[in-house]
Design a protein around this nucleic acid. Structure first.
Lengths: 213, 213
DNA sequence: AGGCTGGTAGTCAACTTTGACTAGCGAGGG
DNA sequence: CCCTCGCTAGTCAAAGTTGACTACCAGCCT
């Protein structure tokens, strides 16, 4: 799965009704341009595609108040909300080595209830375990592991990633179980989007070393 | 950068001359279908594209000995070799959170000399440090880190990844410095491709849990 | 008054990725 | 003998991604 749909659905859903530029700003607010491929082209494409597929409903709107071309506002449909939760659950449980997917899941997990988030993360722990087992088995030649040479480093790297990923997931589970954060149905939700005209309190537009264009 | 070009160039280069299906088998042999998006379509596309760009030279060949359509054999050009080493160096130094890129770099690093591989990995350590600094700075609001809520978990996750990634890179440097593996110019190289007709000694075609199609 | 800059909002062509499909041949079973 | 199965080798359309580009307005500078 690509992370774009999850992020876009999450943003539109939190706004209730949003146009592309607003979604774009939310994703930047979340830092998604740093850790995912959330670029304007991808975002607008995802909006159109999901509108075509009935996950979003598009309203054509007159030219904006602040210059620029006419904009389209989107609302999430019931079908879209279903898809949103499907993607969100998958992002939290599956261990697919795509850190951007997990990051998106973390940012949006509070749309679930605490108990479900915990259950999904426990499932994630099991998925990591299975992945680890599969990797070690794949890279075990019949005539002993010495035959692997430097190729064994690939396996070692993946195993190390799985182990540290599991360790981190475990610590997250502890924090959530200990009462951290406000999940669905627990009162005032954390405000995760920017209101119209509000500016990003984090460093908008800053460049970072390692961006690596 | 996409990892496909690096993998394909590496495979063709080790063969001297190879057709698409051979490359495809090598990548499966390396386990690349597990940890990267190396699928038939991508591989054939990369071959054609790089031939068009002069990185590979294509020979049209009569129908194969073992059934199937006529196949095309490729050789790497001088320009292609340059591009290969550029990509390989980048894969080892840059910390872009794409574990498939590092994996490919690990599998192919022995095409470099030991001293250079070490220098590149040291550079990688510095890149990780910079990335870590950038992430913590981006996610630090003026009024204290308490304002972040669950969004802080995203940062924590990235910082944890950077730290464990650095730790692993450090250990790899130790192993290489300690004399592990055979690098370029150190005699008999490790054989990293399958000869015509040789079968994959690892579990060909095995399914793994977590494959997650 | 004219021009330059910067923010708003989005389009587009080129490229890459994906997954399903094709077509030829040999081996083995009935 | 013929028919299906599986392997060899690859094509293709649809979808996703990228980076450069457009057009409009407001404010500022000169």
């Amino acid at each position: 799965m690509s992370v774009i749909r999850l992020l876009v659905l999450g943003a539109v859903r939190q706004h209730g009704r949003a146009h592309g530029y607003q979604v774009r700003n939310d994703l930047e607010y979340w830092g998604a341009h740093e850790w995912s491929n959330a670029k304007p082209g991808s975002i607008y494409h995802a909006l159109k595609q999901m509108a075509k597929q009935g996950l979003l409903h598009a309203h054509e709107i007159a030219p904006s108040t602040a210059g620029g071309p006419p904009r389209t506002e989107y609302e999430i449909t019931e079908q879209g909300a279903e898809e949103y939760f499907r993607l969100l659950r998958e992002a939290l449980t599956s261990y697919d080595q795509k850190p951007d997917v997990l990051s998106a899941g973390l940012g949006l997990m509070v749309d679930l209830e605490r108990a479900e988030a915990l259950a999904l993360l426990e499932q994630r722990m099991r998925a990591i375990g299975e992945w680890r087992k599969a990797v070690t088995e794949y890279y075990t030649p019949e005539d002993g592991p010495g035959q692997l040479g430097h190729i064994g480093e690939i396996m070692d790297f993946w195993v190390h990633s799985a182990d540290t990923g599991a360790e981190w997931t475990r610590s997250l589970i502890e924090r959530i179980r200990g009462g951290a954060y406000t999940f669905a149905g627990e009162g005032e939700p954390f405000v995760g989007v920017l209101a119209e005209g509000e500016e990003n309190p984090y460093g908008t537009g800053k460049r970072h070393p390692g961006d690596d264009d």
